[in-house]
Measured scan of single mutants.
Amino acid sequence: MTFKLIINGKTLKGETTTEAVDAATAEKVFKQYFNDNGIDGEWTYDDATKTFTITE
């Protein structure tokens, strides 16, 4: 399955996707992406659209 990440950061904005077997696996991938890029904020997940959103 394809999961999308929408980034609404102070310095970084955009979208990316990842292929994962489930939302929990995608969450781990995206959290690592947050850490690697110094993004910290509030994030949500919409199961209907398989979209994670992080807002700094």
Rank of each mutant, 00 (worst) to 15 (best):
K4L: 08
M1D: 08
D40K: 13
I6A: 03
D22W: 02
E42W: 11
A20H: 02
E27C: 14
M1G: 08
F30E: 00
T17F: 13
D36Q: 11
D46L: 02
E19N: 12
F52Q: 00
I7L: 07
T44S: 12
T18A: 07
A23D: 02
T18K: 03
A48K: 10
T49N: 05
Y33S: 04
A26R: 01
T53L: 05
N37M: 15
L5E: 01
N35Q: 14
D36R: 11
G14S: 12
L12N: 08
V29K: 09
F30D: 00
T2P: 04
A26F: 02
I7H: 03
F34N: 13
E19L: 13
D22H: 02
D40P: 07
T11N: 13
I7Q: 02
Y45I: 00
K31R: 14
E15N: 05
V29M: 10
L5C: 14
K31D: 01
T53G: 02
A23L: 05
V21H: 09
D47G: 06
T44I: 07
K28L: 11
D36K: 10
I54E: 00
T25P: 00
Y33N: 03
V21M: 11
T49C: 03
A48I: 10
G41I: 10
D36E: 12
N8R: 12
L5N: 01
E15V: 11
N35F: 13
L12D: 06
T2H: 07
E19F: 15
L12Y: 14
N8E: 08
D36I: 12
T51C: 04
T49G: 03
A26P: 00
K50W: 05
E19Q: 14
G14R: 11
L12M: 11
T11L: 11
F34I: 15
T49E: 05
E27M: 13
D36V: 11
L12Q: 09
I39L: 12
V21L: 11
I39W: 12
T55A: 05
E56N: 05
K50G: 03
Q32I: 07
T49K: 05
Y45R: 00
T25F: 07
K10C: 14
E42R: 08
E15K: 06
Q32R: 11
T49R: 05
W43H: 01
G9D: 02
K50V: 03
A23R: 11
Y33D: 03
K50N: 07
K4S: 05
F52L: 01
T16V: 15
K31W: 06
T55V: 09
K13D: 04
M1P: 09
T44Y: 09
T44H: 10
T11Y: 14
T16C: 15
L12P: 03
T49P: 00
V21S: 10
Y45E: 00
F52P: 00
T44L: 07
L12F: 14
F3V: 02
K28H: 08
E42N: 08
A26C: 02
T11M: 10
F52C: 01
F34E: 08
T16Y: 15
T11K: 09
T2K: 09
T53H: 05
N8Q: 09
E19D: 08
F34V: 15
E56K: 04
A20F: 05
T51R: 02
K50F: 10
A24K: 10
T17Q: 09
I54G: 02
Y33E: 04
F3D: 01
A48D: 10
I7D: 01
D47V: 09
D40G: 08
L12R: 07
D47S: 12
T18Y: 13
G38R: 09
V21T: 10
D47K: 06
D47L: 04
A20C: 07
Y33Q: 07
A48N: 09
T25E: 14
D40E: 13
D22P: 01
T55N: 08
F30C: 03
E42P: 05
E19M: 14
K13C: 15
G41V: 10
A26K: 01
W43Q: 01
G14Q: 12
K4C: 08
F3W: 04
A20D: 02
T51M: 02
N35S: 13
F3C: 04
I7K: 00
Y33F: 13
I54K: 02
T18R: 04
T18G: 03
N37D: 05
T11R: 06
T17Y: 14
N37Y: 15
L12E: 06
T53W: 06
T51L: 02
T44Q: 08
K50Q: 08
M1F: 15
Y45L: 01
E42K: 08
T53D: 01
I6Y: 04
K28W: 10
E19C: 13
E27N: 04
T17W: 14
F3E: 01
F30N: 01
K10Y: 11
A23E: 05
T49A: 06
A48H: 09
K4V: 12
T25W: 06
I39N: 04
K4N: 05
